[in-house]
Write a protein that binds this DNA or RNA. Structure first.
Lengths: 128, 128
DNA sequence: TTTGACCTTCCAACGATGGGAAGGTGCAGA
DNA sequence: TCTGCACCTTCCCATCGTTGGAAGGTCAAA
């Protein structure tokens, strides 16, 4: 299987597959005589795994660890769980940050007429 | 006032002040004979405005617009409000995304023993 | 043989920020 | 006056994840 098909099947673009290989997130693919990368079902499986981890917001560094744990049949699930819960914590912190921003901004916008006049509590709020 | 003092007073690092100037987010500062940037109270005010907008998660592109509107005494508040509400929408979308991630991951983690054994529903979930 | 779709590597960009090098300036103390 | 230190200047590089393009090689069908 060429990289294009692997990309289609895994949902990871060919561009990104090469990138992931270069930073060691996925193992180096085999090569044809002409130098084309060759992918197996298992390779596609790894790529799909990476895509799902990415969809859950893990960083590439974390994904690299997760792939390592996934491929290591004798890992301790505690290690995976720790990684996952750390990420949950980071997500929840980010959510709280964004919620605070959204809330403040909604508050400012609520008081703004939003018409042709120049008076604007939003700008006043930013100006303090 | 030198850039260091302006940085301290506005809460924007000297490094960033120069950067903001270079991309046109804040007006070019005056210069001393020796080439040092000179800041007035008003300049510090603009920088503080930028910092607060940044704290609310606005992009530099949006902040550039906001600074323009702020400095334009004849703006229509509708324009500011539109910008603000677009940003609120973007924030809320991002929040929803992160919440979905957090929720999925918590669900997976709940079923994981997190002990010395290798069985791990988190990895299984990512492996699907 | 030509054409078009694929593949290769390498280099650059985004956005916001930080780090550091190499060199000039300003001011206080000896 | 000299010295030292804290500050300033510009310039380039790094981060993170991803995308884009250029220049060139390969493959298969018409």
């Amino acid at each position: 299987m060429n990289i294009g098909q692997a990309a289609e099947r895994s949902g990871v673009s060919a561009k990104l597959i090469r990138h992931y290989e270069s930073i060691g997130v996925v193992p180096k693919a085999g090569r044809s005589d002409a130098g084309y990368r060759i992918y197996t079902e298992n390779d596609v499986h790894i790529l799909s795994f990476v895509r799902r981890a990415r969809d859950l917001g893990f960083s590439m560094k974390e994904i690299k660890k997760l792939v390592g744990l996934w491929r290591n049949k004798s890992r301790a699930s505690a290690e995976v769980k720790t990684l996952a819960l750390q990420h949950v914590k980071a997500l929840d912190q980010k959510i709280a940050q964004l919620e605070a921003m959204s809330k403040s901004l909604k508050q400012l916008a609520r008081n703004c007429h939003g018409d042709g006049r120049p008076e604007c509590p939003i700008l006043d709020g930013l100006s303090e």
